[in-house]
Design a protein around this nucleic acid. Structure first.
Lengths: 123, 123
DNA sequence: GGTCGATATGATAATGGTTACATATCGACT
DNA sequence: AGTCGATATGTAACCATTATCATATCGACC
């Protein structure tokens, strides 16, 4: 998915992959995936949002929406105490992330192959 | 959390695939792809836009942007004459569409496989 | 040469998603 | 019991994309 070195009018492929509800609403995409990763890494939603350069408000809303659509919690939230509070991932969230990563890896490989073929056809 | 309104079995995968310029700007995605297909089918941009339910203004802008980013024309435009004018695809556009279709087919297969694995992991 | 309908394009309005602001709540720790 | 910082959530401001409106241009055909 990284843009290769290319000339001015050269093109490359990009894709987005996400989990969707039957309604069509997105449940988890690249953004939320990264966010969950950072929550796992940093132990709080606030720190994760800051690190990713998005507002806490949006980060919180994204997680909430995901959880509501999935029907189960992705994070364990705590308020108070040292540091003011923390968020950690649930086991389900960790499993989800792992599966999501594998998925992306497969898709990356697929698109790499497809891109080579595409370039051949359109050159 | 609110009461779950859906089970996690209700989720599925979606993806978007598009050609991008090095700048990151999208050149051709699903919308433009369909639009080109309909231009080919109907012989005019206006008819294609109407069929797809998008404004002529947007359709025209999308094609123009694609052509500018690619550095070559996707359509042959004619004004005047019987019917007022027509648009047809260039040979390059046709090749591009063909390659794009093959690409999508490959990705569809890849995502099908990946999804089966994903469901297994998250069930 | 006048007509007609599609191409061509600027300008403005509406829309949806993000950010910014503001404020309340919780609870382990001192 | 009071403090502190993160979670929680509503509302308003902002921005980028899309749609709507409006208008000009071209040129084969009659």
């Amino acid at each position: 998915m990284k843009p290769p070195k290319s000339s001015k009018n050269d093109v490359f492929l990009r894709y987005k992959l996400w989990l969707s509800a039957v309604s069509g609403e997105g449940i988890i995409g690249e953004g939320t995936h990264l966010l969950l990763r950072e929550i796992e890494e940093r132990g709080s939603l606030k720190a994760a949002a800051e690190f990713l350069g998005i507002s806490y408000r949006k980060a919180w809303g994204d997680i909430k929406k995901s959880e509501e659509l999935l029907g189960y919690d992705l994070t364990v939230k705590r308020r108070g105490g040292i540091g003011g509070g923390q968020s950690d991932l649930t086991t389900k969230a960790k499993n989800l992330l792992e599966a999501y990563d594998a998925l992306h890896k497969k898709m990356d490989t697929a698109i790499e192959d497809a891109y080579a073929e595409f370039k051949e056809k359109t050159k």
